[in-house]
């Protein structure tokens, strides 16, 4: 594939970087990233991945744009209220970069559709807002051997880690099981600061770009936490892959995907519980 003059200019700041260069930009254009959740994490990540020239971006979200989303989900605008989030996100990404092919999946991820969704993608970005989805994404990616970026945000705090199945611990090696229903408040109950969500979503996009281009060190085996109130980042070295992990261990007990129950307050009309 040869670059057009326009592409050379569009991606000039990448191509100039020794660590990315011509080869890295070609890898980005040939890559496929799936973003699950077009919310506080997925919105900034999708914008930066589109701008970076990730050739195919899948976006999965069943919701429509709500006024309370716009405080942080910067891929959607006021004019998009009521529109399916995946369509609003697609329009924003295509407006930034016509090089990008956007695939939309207007559905909630479940144990029955996730394997089909992740199959064609090189890297998965977890931008969901609940534990059942996070464990489902982890288990599915481990079973399918797909690398992914996990992240979570609440109030002024965020965290992320990158999982490459077989190379380091998975989310379940570290967190074992979802917390009891209603034990942890959701963003809806607890609040979240938009710019902090942006920081973490952008870090996820960076991990995707570094994975695709083979640049630098990933957060494999580390958990990065960020506290926006104290402006402190902590990189926590995680224990090695747990041989007793229920999904990625030597004798996995989870061999089928699980749909954990959602916290009751997160139930929305029309959504299967």
């Amino acid at each position: 594939m040869a670059f057009t003059n326009e592409q050379m200019e569009r991606y000039s700041r990448h191509i100039i970087l020794k660590e990315i260069g011509v080869k890295g930009q070609k890898k980005l254009l040939a890559s496929k990233v799936l973003i699950i959740g077009a919310g506080g994490l997925g919105a900034p990540a999708a914008l930066y991945l589109a701008a970076a020239g990730v050739g195919t971006i899948g976006i999965a979200d069943a919701d429509a744009v709500d006024l309370s989303n716009l405080q942080r989900q910067i891929i959607h605008s006021t004019a998009d209220l009521g529109k399916p989030k995946v369509l609003s996100a697609q329009e924003s990404m295509e407006a930034i970069n016509p090089d990008v092919q956007v695939n939309t999946y207007q559905e909630f991820i479940t144990s029955s559709n996730i394997m089909d969704l992740i199959r064609d993608y090189d890297f998965i970005l977890d931008g969901t807002d609940n534990f059942p989805a996070k464990f489902l994404i982890n288990d599915a990616c481990v079973m399918a051997g797909k690398p992914f970026s996990h992240a979570g945000i609440i109030r002024f705090k965020g965290q992320l880690m990158t999982v490459i199945p077989g190379e380091g611990p998975c989310y379940r090696c570290v967190f074992k099981n979802p917390p009891p229903k209603d034990a942890v408040p959701t963003c809806r109950q607890a609040g979240v600061i938009g710019a902090m969500a942006g920081v973490i979503g952008c870090l996820q996009a960076l991990e995707a770009i570094k994975y695709i281009t083979g640049t630098g060190e990933l957060l494999v085996g580390s958990l990065l936490t960020f506290d926006a109130l104290t402006m402190e980042f902590h990189k926590i070295r995680l224990p090695k892959k747990d041989p007793d992990c229920a999904v990625c261990g030597e004798h996995p007990t989870i061999t089928k995907l699980i749909d954990y129950e959602q916290a009751a307050c997160d139930w929305k009309p029309g959504e299967k519980v």
Partner: peptide
């Protein structure tokens, strides 16, 4: 600049 260098690099 900076496409000069980019074009040479390509």
């Amino acid at each position: 600049c900076p496409v000069t260098f980019v074009k040479a690099k390509v």
